[in-house]
Computed example of a mutant assay.
Amino acid sequence: MALFEKNWYTVPWKLVPNKIVRYPGGREIDRFRGIYPGADDGRPEAWVGSDTRTVNAAEKGDPNDGCAEVILPDGSKRYLFEAVEANPEAALGAAHIARNGAHVGVLVKLLDAEKQLGLQTHPTRPYAKEWFNSDYGKEESWYVIGKREDSPETPYVYMGFKEGVTREMFEEAYDRGDIRAMEDCCHKIPVEVGDAFFIQAGLPHAIGCGCFVAEVQEPSDITVGAHKLSHGTPEEQAFHKERLLGCYIYNGADFEENLRRYRIEPKTLRAGDWGEESVVIGKSQTPYFSFTRLAAKAPVELQRTGTPQIVLVLSGSGALRCGETAMDIQKADELFIPYGAGAITLEPKEETVLLLCNPAGADYGETE
């Protein structure tokens, strides 16, 4: 604890903005942060409040690639995982540690797709344990916060198998290396700002060109694509094929039923003269994480959840008041709220919108 004072865990912490090298994109993250004209620099993801490492961190030469840094109350910067490790109970709470270990337990991203991402899926927790030796699967969710106006196509997502698609049909296209045919097995859905989607483990999906989303998910970087290995022995190719095709869940539906399953309508959690807070993804979708959208035009106390929280400021400005401490906030700020923080009041200067993201076990007042 020499580097970390106990009272530091009683107030929110600002996070250091990052961008992660992945695939084409990144401009909309810059613009969201007020950087113009912004750059498509191959860093299309920001990992917010993350203590999760990218799957290829070692290849990049950075063993902590993907991990967020935090600005501590004395102005110093450390990795968030270091601050957690220094005092896990103050950072996370004993109940959270019992459920999730001494880890944040949720991963929040900003994701900007200049071009369509590859068709993919993610494993359930049992499948992840069997095939990837991981305690986490990768259920995830998207909240659309922007669209590229100069995108060559109306922004869209692929999501869910069409009715009647079988593993055999999908496998035939895989064997031919026909990615377009595999995509044609799935529904293509135009998106609008404010749309929310839940991506169940095993669901085929791809984010289309021009989409800028906030992604809340299990803290895992396991992705199962829809293509063969670029090289490998016959045995390696066979193992890859079995693991890949077995990860997808073949429970297709017609277009309307598919939307009913996976496009989520937020539910009002509380409202008043100050504004409204809605559950975007909650217990009705997954036990592994949740997040709410709070829009306030007057002071309102944040609902504490019994867990740490990751906060993303989508718009507006103001302050977060915690006891005698007031922290100025503005659009694109990223924050981590330790378990040990006291009551926090949002004092907006204008209508201010927050995403409040929770790990498993959070109690934010939602009923089933």
Rank of each mutant, 00 (worst) to 15 (best):
G164D: 02
G164L: 03
T166R: 06
R167A: 14
R167Q: 15
E168F: 04
M169F: 06
F170T: 09
F170H: 07
E171S: 15
Y174F: 15
G177T: 09
G177S: 05
G177H: 03
G177L: 02
D178Q: 05
R180T: 14
R180H: 08
R180I: 12
R180C: 00
E183P: 09
E183G: 09
D184Q: 14
D184S: 12
C185K: 06
C185L: 04
C185A: 13
C185Q: 01
C186Y: 05
K188E: 07
P190R: 01
V191N: 06
V193A: 07
V193L: 04
G194H: 04
G194W: 01
D195F: 07
F197T: 04
F198C: 09
Q200E: 12
A201K: 01
G202E: 00
G202D: 02
G202R: 01
L203N: 10
L203V: 14
P204A: 08
P204V: 06
H205K: 08
H205V: 11
A206T: 10
A206M: 05
G208K: 04
C209Q: 12
C211K: 02
F212C: 12
V213H: 04
V213M: 06
A214L: 13
E215H: 09
Q217G: 10
S220E: 02
S220C: 15
S220P: 10
D221E: 05
I222F: 03
T223D: 03
T223R: 05
V224Q: 06
V224C: 05
A226F: 00
H227K: 11
L229M: 11
L229C: 10
L229F: 07
S230R: 11
H231G: 09
H231F: 12
G232W: 01
G232Q: 03
T233V: 10
E235Q: 15
E236V: 01
E236L: 01
A238Y: 00
A238F: 00
A238L: 00
F239Y: 09
F239L: 13
F239S: 03
H240D: 07
H240E: 00
K241T: 12
K241M: 02
E242A: 15
E242I: 06
R243M: 15
R243H: 02
C247F: 01
I249E: 08
I249C: 06
N251M: 04
N251P: 01
G252K: 03
G252V: 05
G252N: 02
A253Q: 10
D254G: 15
D254H: 10
F255H: 13
E256S: 14
E256W: 05
E257R: 11
L259S: 11
R260M: 02
R261N: 12
Y262K: 09
R263Q: 14
R263L: 08
I264D: 00
E265Q: 14
E265H: 11
K267G: 00
T268A: 13
T268M: 11
L269R: 10
R270N: 08
A271E: 15
G272M: 06
D273N: 11
D273G: 15
D273I: 05
W274K: 07
